[in-house]
Amino acid sequence: MSTPPISLDRLTKAFGSRRAVEDVSLTVPEGKVFGFLGPNGAGKSTTIRCLLGLYRPTSGTARLLGRDPATGSAAFRREVGYLPGELHLPDRLNGADILARFGRIRGLRDTAYRDSLVDRFGADVTRPLGILSKGNKQKLGLVLAFMARPRLLVLDEPTSGLDPLLQDEFDTLLKETVADGRTVLLSSHDLNEVQRVADRVAIIRAGRVVVDDTIESLRARVPHTMEAAFDHDVDTSCLADVPGVTVTATAPRTVRLGWSGPVGPLLSAVAALGPEDVVARPVDLDELFHDYYRDSGGDAA
């Protein structure tokens, strides 16, 4: 089996006595979009900086394309595209100048793909960056990250500042990238963005990874919700005995419940009570996500 593009093993980064990330272990498989989710300040950017060799881990290891990012040759970084969470480009230069300079650093010769990205995102490359909006700067950041068609893309909050149309364009670009066999680590605090494009997701909270799973199996894990209404008073206590069912709210003529697993036994039990109306809502990852987010307290950077 080939080396995974990213692997972190018990990675810990402390600033003084404060641990920004602790014991983070992750493996990002090749050719996938890997969502890295967490509330602001959970440790996403710190993890990414350790991964890229910008921060030195306090303990544990980070491997980028099988290499220790902090030592030795930097040539393998040609295979890595990076978009920082807080993109700061020199105010006085324009986009064309920035793209040309970073292109030279990366040894980029064929600029056709870069130019096509500039067109797709409608990036303004003529005006100085100092007078561009955050969204316009972000477009340039995306072009910088993708322009050399790297094997691995590390994108920290890539769509912040982009309008919805460009977010769609970005989603399409991600799909093209993985279809090409390349890999994307997509950090975000927005679950909707991640569940649209990612195959797998890790959730980090207060510096620790609390979930690392595929979107599919997360969906299977999330309780579905159902609401049943009756034209007569009913005793719904029998529903709580059905395996996998949790009654979340009950009134004499309505019941709201969550369930996971097969729906058959639940339907039979509800049918026996003679409901007037039944509404089942699809899986909502948001609820799961918020459960993981709650109590995070913002105690990590």
């Binding site: 060799g53 910008l54 930097a74 650093i105 040894g107």
Partner: peptide, 11 residues
């Protein structure tokens, strides 16, 4: 923040 971007390049 500029150094973070340049130090992540192949150099």
């Amino acid at each position: 923040g500029l150094l973070g971007l340049t130090a992540a390049q192949p150099v």
